[in-house]
Write a protein that binds this DNA or RNA. Structure first.
Length: 589
RNA sequence: GGUGGCAUAGCUCAGCUGGAUAGAGCACCUGCCUUCUAAGCAGGCGGUCCUAGGUUCGAAUCCUAGUGCCAUCACCA
């Protein structure tokens, strides 16, 4: 492409005596003949004349002077160039023989990136919203890795605060010493139940107080159970051994439960941070910033930062009683991370778009504190997952539970597979693992294919599709290719360079060649959706090719070899692309 | 009210830094399993790209204003 650009510039100079440094190439649209299109319109400012005539002149010049260009045509102001089959075949053999096609290996020059995702509260189980968060964060981490940077995956566990005390208190009052062991419940589910229980009791007490003449606002503040929870938080901060013991116990239950869900979901972390361990550092930093004048203190001794010059408000960073707020601990956590990993030059936060403002402020504060890495902070902000009934609310029980959803998806995959009945010879264990691969593939693809910043409407009643633009469709194509490769019991390692290409082969080839730039594009946009949509297009092209021409049944050996190689390469790219999305591919289905 | 995001086919979504007649899937209707896996392929139906202006040879895409939905503007996290 660079070569053509150079020659074209030379040609323009020769024919018209002017210099043009910006020349744009684009893939030729399907309905026209050609491979690459140059838009002649954009030259009209420097070259006066009829665009069609200019196109014809430049086209002839290129055909004469560039070996790879064998033909051209001009439609209106569009110059379509036709490339030789040799060019495509050479291109393919480079792709076919390259190791990890499309992936850029990590080099020492690039600063590492830390990607934060998941970051749950430890008072309730994970739900569909967390699933989107986890899938996005995990996938973006994989994509950045593939684009050539070292990546650390991390989460911040929100293990302190009033919400934790609520579950603790309800368990103390109504728990009868229930444990995950003696109930058989997952730890996060057990704790979540008591969080809901707290809310029920709290609401009862409010109604009671209102009946006794309190206003609603008063009742909400004066309910005994809430006061008791607040007492508990104070005791926790003071290090009360009884409370801390209970806290550790119940948090551990939750961690064990999360562990299982993460494992089922197929995500992992290199390092966990706990809010209870970083908020103190945040407080120190605020104290220093107060001395250097970045923050200021109000009469009630709360500490603030003034961001009105940046078009934002004043924002609190420390309460009047000296305790930390959300912002305080986030400042501390960020700094702690760079301390722990000195090679990290930037942080990515996977957090819902309801916190856009928070992160804008956080990034500004860190910049004002003078950290050079503060230039490389990115809030991977994504839209909420809403149900037809509206927002999901844990306290009201209107959530789609993560574990339940994973089981549902596996069940659906099982039903469909059994109906199709293509798995003779598979053991029960192999089947179950396949159902999980397919079910999870459907769910993950369904969520990842949409642009992160858009909100998703999830209807549990209308089940996720397994046909069309879906994970299983792509997995199916992969499995089909594997089946061909299993049957290809001949040597297809030779390099093919002198056959004439079928249009369908050419389309597949063009789509394949895009993979490296797609990875870079997805990385710079932090968007798994770009990978998903690319893969879908590739698979569509391949299936069309598959149905139009024979592969193993091909009579010409050269063509047979080439088509087998092409199929294999497509399956490799599917596998790589799905790896970036955290989706497995099956050998059969 | 201030700020930010979103708005494309009945539904779910693509459409890259402006380019040709706006594309897929689902749903609905036709065809295709005697050949490498039909979770597939080929075709049909379906559009005021929210509205109105502007910039440009050219706008779904950029700018301005408006409308609608969502989020946010807490000594909650």
């Amino acid at each position: 492409m660079k070569k053509i650009k150079k020659i074209l510039q030379k040609g323009i100079h020769l024919l018209y005596g002017v210099e043009i440094d910006k020349i744009e190439f684009q893939a030729t649209r399907k309905d026209f003949e050609g491979d690459i299109t140059i838009v002649v319109f954009s030259f009209l400012k420097t070259i006066k004349g009829n665009p069609v005539e200019i196109g014809n002149n430049l086209g002839s010049y290129l055909v004469e002077n560039v070996d790879e260009v064998v033909n051209f045509n001009v439609v209106k102001g569009f110059l379509n160039l036709v490339f030789s089959d040799t060019y495509f075949l050479t291109n393919f053999s480079e792709i076919y023989t390259s190791e990890n096609f499309g992936f850029v290996s990590t080099t020492g020059d690039n600063k590492s990136v830390m990607v934060e995702y998941s970051s749950p509260n430890t008072n309730k189980p994970l739900h569909l919203g967390h699933i989107r968060n986890n899938l996005l964060g995990y996938s973006v981490a994989e994509i950045i890795k593939a684009s050539g940077k070292k990546v650390y995956k991390t989460q911040i566990i929100n293990d302190r605060g009033i919400h934790i005390c609520k579950s603790m208190l309800a368990w103390q009052r109504y728990g009868n010493n229930e444990t995950p062991e003696n109930t058989g419940l997952k730890g996060d589910k057990l704790v979540g139940n008591y969080y809901v229980r707290f809310d029920q009791e709290y609401k009862k007490e409010i109604l009671n107080l209102i009946a006794n003449g309190y206003t609603e606002d008063e009742a909400k503040k004066q309910a005994p159970i809430l006061l008791e929870a607040q007492q508990m938080l104070i005791k926790w901060e003071a290090g009360d051994s009884e409370v801390v013991k209970l806290w550790k116990n119940m948090n551990q239950w939750v961690y064990d439960g999360f562990e299982q869900t993460y494992k089922n979901l197929g995500v992992d972390f290199d390092k966990n941070y706990y809010e209870s361990e970083t908020y103190l550092l945040g407080k120190d930093v605020v104290a220093n910033g107060l001395e250097s004048g970045i923050f200021f203190k109000k009469e009630d001794s709360s500490v603030w930062i003034d961001l009105t010059d940046e078009g934002l408000d004043e924002k609190i960073v420390l309460r009047s009683d000296g305790t930390a707020v959300y912002m305080t601990q986030d400042i501390g956590t960020a700094i702690q991370r760079i301390k722990d990993y000195t090679d990290v030059g930037g942080l990515v936060y996977t957090v819902g778009n309801e916190q856009d403002y928070h992160f804008k402020v956080l990034f500004l504060i860190l910049k004002k504190l003078g950290y050079n890495w503060a230039e490389n902070l990115y809030h991977l902000s994504y839209g909420m997952v809403d149900l037809p009934s509206g927002k999901m609310k844990s306290r009201e029980g209107t959530v789609v539970d993560a574990d339940d959803l994973l089981i549902d998806m596996t069940n659906t995959a099982r039903e469909i597979s059994e109906e199709l009945g293509k798995l003779e010879g598979y053991t029960d264990g192999e089947k179950e693992s396949l159902y999980k691969t397919i079910g999870l593939g459907a769910l993950k693809y369904h969520i990842l294919k949409v642009d992160p910043k858009k909100r998703i409407l999830f209807d549990p009643a209308a089940s996720i599709d397994f046909n069309g633009n879906t994970g299983p469709f792509i997995q199916y194509t992969y499995a089909r290719i594997q089946s061909i490769l299993r049957k290809a019991d001949f040597d297809y390692s030779a390099t093919i360079n002198d056959i004439s290409l079928h249009p369908k082969e050419k389309s597949v080839l063009k789509q394949l060649a895009l993979f490296p730039e797609i990875i870079q594009l997805a990385a710079s946009n932090f968007s798994p959706a770009i990978i998903a949509n690319y893969t879908y297009d590739l698979v569509k092209e391949y299936n069309s090719f598959y149905q139009s021409v024979p592969i193993l049944g091909c009579e010409n050996l050269q063509e047979k070899i080439f088509r087998t190689q092409l199929s294999r390469q497509v399956s490799e790219v599917i596998k790589s692309a799905f790896q970036l999305l955290g989706i497995d591919v099956p050998e059969r289905m």
